[in-house]
């Protein structure tokens, strides 16, 4: 039932980062690909990989899973911009109607010391998990919870906590930052719990441990470029960084 017409067909030239293994030398390879404006960006890469397999060449490795902007797997820097040209959009939600036939597009993985390349466009983001392990939770055993209505939460705070909690852990903030800082990522989780009554008992311990781990993992510092917020597909606000800085200062003083 799908209509096949030539409408929206486009020819593109891609420069894709190819790297065989961690630490191996990598370089940009150039490919021509036939696409259509209704495709998603990743569907365009599917077409490229189909062409490569038909030619007997190894397909390009890239991370993807849900393809609806929520799992945080995709991690492509397109023409220098993490997740490409459209704001508040992951690569998987980016569609080719953003491009014109004849365009030349450069595709590379996140670039950050804390995110070593695994192969081609795939990077290792396990440092993010370690930051969360240091304190990104409320310590409550299953079955030990009071009734959900025992503690009312002001709607405004619940909404702000949600806004921070939307982070999908993709790492675009790090890729966009000239210092490869993970402050936006870390502060989003710190903020979520700072804004909720459930987060209060561990408030100081959490922020100190998460910031310490973030530094140990080799992420840089924040110097207020705000590129992170601009690149974030969920528009997580830099006010979370300010909140984390306050929390960190408060916790440091309190601990003394």
């Amino acid at each position: 039932m799908i209509q096949k017409t030539g409408h929206g067909d486009m020819k593109l030239t891609l420069e894709v980062w190819r790297q065989a293994a961690p630490g191996a030398p990598g370089k940009f390879e150039t490919y021509e690909v036939d696409a259509n404006e209704h495709m998603s960006f990743l569907e365009m890469l599917d077409v490229l990989n189909q062409q490569l397999v038909e030619r007997g060449e190894e397909p390009v490795v890239f991370e993807h899973d849900c393809r609806e902007g929520i799992c945080g797997s995709c991690n492509l820097t397109i023409d220098g911009k993490p997740h490409g040209p459209r704001e508040r959009t992951t690569v998987c939600q980016l569609h080719m109607r953003e491009y014109r036939s004849g365009d030349r597009i450069r595709i590379e993985p996140w670039r950050a010391n804390a995110f070593p390349i695994v192969k081609d466009l795939m990077v290792d983001r396990s440092a993010f998990d370690r930051i969360q392990q240091a304190g990104g939770y409320v310590s409550v055993n299953t079955g030990a919870a009071p009734d959900a209505h025992a503690i009312p939460v002001a709607k405004q705070n619940a909404d702000m906590a949600f806004d921070a909690a939307q982070c999908i852990g993709c790492g675009a903030c790090v890729a966009a930052c000239p210092n490869a800082s993970a402050m936006l990522f870390t502060s989003a989780k710190v903020s979520q719990f700072t804004l909720l009554p459930q987060g209060q008992p561990e408030r100081e311990r959490r922020v100190l441990a998460m910031v310490e781990t973030m530094d140990e993992e080799g992420f840089g510092n924040c110097s207020n470029h705000y590129e992170c917020e601009a690149a974030c597909p969920k528009a997580i606000s830099v006010t979370n960084i300010a909140r984390m800085n306050r929390e960190y200062a408060r916790a440091s003083l309190k601990r003394r």
Binding site: Y137, G143, A148, D159, F162
Partner: peptide, 22 residues
């Protein structure tokens, strides 16, 4: 019912009404 209690205790930011309830 226990699931909702558990998740709220974990800090899951469910939608709330102006009175602060879920």
């Amino acid at each position: 019912v226990d699931i909702i209690d558990q998740c709220v205790a974990q800090g899951v930011p469910f939608a709330r009404e102006y009175g602060g309830l879920l």
